[in-house]
Amino acid sequence: MKIRVPATSANLGPGFDSCGIALSQYLVIEIASASPEWVVEHDLSDSIPRDESNLLIQTALKLVPDLTPHRIKMSTDIPVARGLGSSSSVIVAGIELANRLGNLNLSIREKLEIATEIEGHPDNVAPAICGSFVVASYADEEVEYVKHHFPECDVVAFIPSEELLTSASRGVLPNEFSYQEAVKASSIANVMIAAVLNGNLPLAGKMMEKDLFHEKHRKHLVPHLAEIRSITQEMGGYGSYLSGAGPTVLTLLAPDKSEQIAERLKELDSNARVEILAIDQEGLQVY
């Protein structure tokens, strides 16, 4: 049995801690035979455990503490600590691992509630489970979510070689907003979401670049954001935004422009990865 979970991009600018999309990079978990103890085989960093202390197994055991150990093969092309939901993908896979081996028969809502409780907010885990575009809230320990088809487009990801930990990126955010500023920021987010629902990506991209919730506080941590945004505007992309807590920057654009913009972005940093991705419409899949 295989479990496949897509990468995700959270916030989409002003949709802070609530909006997210699923992307065509994947974590794949292959469940092999039962074993005396948990073994997680992977070719990733040596800092990622290969026993039951792995986040995948720890998540599964939170749901079913007496789950029968298995040999697991883990592979992923989702970069770690780059704002593309690498930890969320493992959490979602761990929940599904417990769901399948423990015969829990969890609904999508139940999976999302568990994942949100573990992660703290739903913007990454919701699209990882549902696919496409999801708007979700987590208030008073209750999760509400709406999935909608994201308009067809290419997504160019500029992925720096340096990590930016979420804890460091969150540390620069303000503790409070003025009432006037909060109203302005939420109106930008509302128009962005409405534009996505109407299939109006030029307007959605414009509003993504007007975010007041987090990007203006984090821009000094990601100096390439302004450069990428300038290139995007010059070459006719819809818009660029900081993916999650960063440092990855995503650019939304029509497919006929993606190769040209990707080549321009490669000139900014020879050590960065520049990849052309698609929106994943399926979310969590089990084969």
Rank of each mutant, 00 (worst) to 15 (best):
E52A: 01
N175R: 13
E162L: 13
R4F: 04
K184L: 13
E162W: 12
P255I: 07
S258F: 10
R82I: 03
Q58I: 03
E267M: 12
E110L: 03
A157K: 00
I21Y: 05
F158A: 06
T76K: 01
A245D: 01
Y238I: 04
L197Q: 13
G131T: 00
A115Y: 04
L173S: 07
E282P: 01
K147F: 05
I118D: 05
S9W: 10
R82G: 09
T116P: 08
D17C: 06
S167D: 14
Q180S: 15
R50P: 03
E163V: 09
I279W: 04
A115G: 13
D66L: 12
E113G: 02
E275G: 02
D123G: 04
L265E: 00
V28E: 15
P202G: 05
Y179A: 14
G244I: 09
E152R: 11
D256M: 09
A81K: 08
P247Y: 02
V5A: 08
D46H: 12
S107Q: 02
A93W: 05
E96C: 03
P6Q: 09
E209R: 12
N99T: 02
A7W: 07
V125I: 11
S35M: 02
S243L: 08
R170I: 10
V183C: 14
H224N: 12
V125R: 07
P127D: 09
T166W: 11
K216N: 15
T232N: 13
S89C: 08
I48F: 05
A139W: 06
A185T: 10
S47E: 13
V5Q: 09
S230T: 14
T59A: 03
A98M: 01
S88W: 03
Y145E: 03
G94C: 01
L197W: 11
M208K: 06
K216V: 11
L165W: 09
L27N: 04
L225T: 12
L252P: 07
V172T: 12
H70S: 00
P247R: 05
L225S: 10
A262E: 10
R82C: 05
V191L: 13
N54E: 03
E259W: 07
V135T: 12
P223F: 05
A10P: 08
K73M: 12
F213G: 07
H149A: 14
L27Q: 04
P79I: 12
L253S: 11
A128Q: 14
T68V: 13
G15C: 09
V134K: 05
K62Q: 15
A204E: 06
S132R: 00
A34H: 07
A22P: 02
A189K: 01
V274Q: 09
N103G: 12
G131K: 02
K206R: 12
A262L: 10
V28Y: 01
M235N: 14
L165P: 05
A278Y: 09
L63S: 02
P14Q: 11
H70C: 02
E162S: 12
L197H: 11
A7V: 11
L84F: 06
V39A: 10
V286L: 13
A278T: 10
H214F: 11
M208F: 06
L112R: 09
E52W: 05
L253C: 15
I261K: 09
